[in-house]
Design a protein around this nucleic acid. Structure first.
Length: 109
DNA sequence: ATTCTGACGTGGG
DNA sequence: CCCCACGCCAGAA
């Protein structure tokens, strides 16, 4: 099934499954959807999802745990505020204890 | 079709 | 860990 889905659809499907109080990386999602090295496109797709409240795009950061895309959200620090609201500690645009809050996405089951 | 860009990742120093 | 350069690939102009 998922084979016929568009790239964006796959990204949305995985992003929506990110648990509360957890974060993941673009590359992890890319692999989960079989995109592999197109991690950049994941962020690109999430850009459109950023305005979709059903898709927690704010829980997606880069491999370093830095909120690289916070600038794409409405407010200047909306992304960070959303993460902190979930109990995630963010310092200087970077997720603290990134390994502890990291969640590995699964392929569209 | 061609070119450029981009919420990234990896490798080398 | 940081910094630099390259790769990767889908979408937009």
């Amino acid at each position: 099934m998922a084979v016929n889905e568009n790239f964006f659809q796959k990204v949305y499907a995985v992003a929506r499954r990110i648990p509360y109080g957890r974060v993941t990386s673009y590359g992890a999602i890319a692999k989960a959807i079989g995109a592999g090295k197109s991690a950049r496109m994941v962020g690109y797709a999430l850009n459109g999802a950023s305005q979709m409240p059903e898709i927690p795009a704010h829980r997606v950061v880069n491999r370093k745990g830095v909120l690289t895309g916070k600038h794409h959200f409405q407010g200047t620090d909306l992304m960070q505020q959303l993460l902190e609201n979930e109990g995630i500690v963010v310092k200087n645009n970077q997720v603290q204890d990134f390994e502890k809050v990291f969640w590995e996405p699964e392929a569209t089951n």
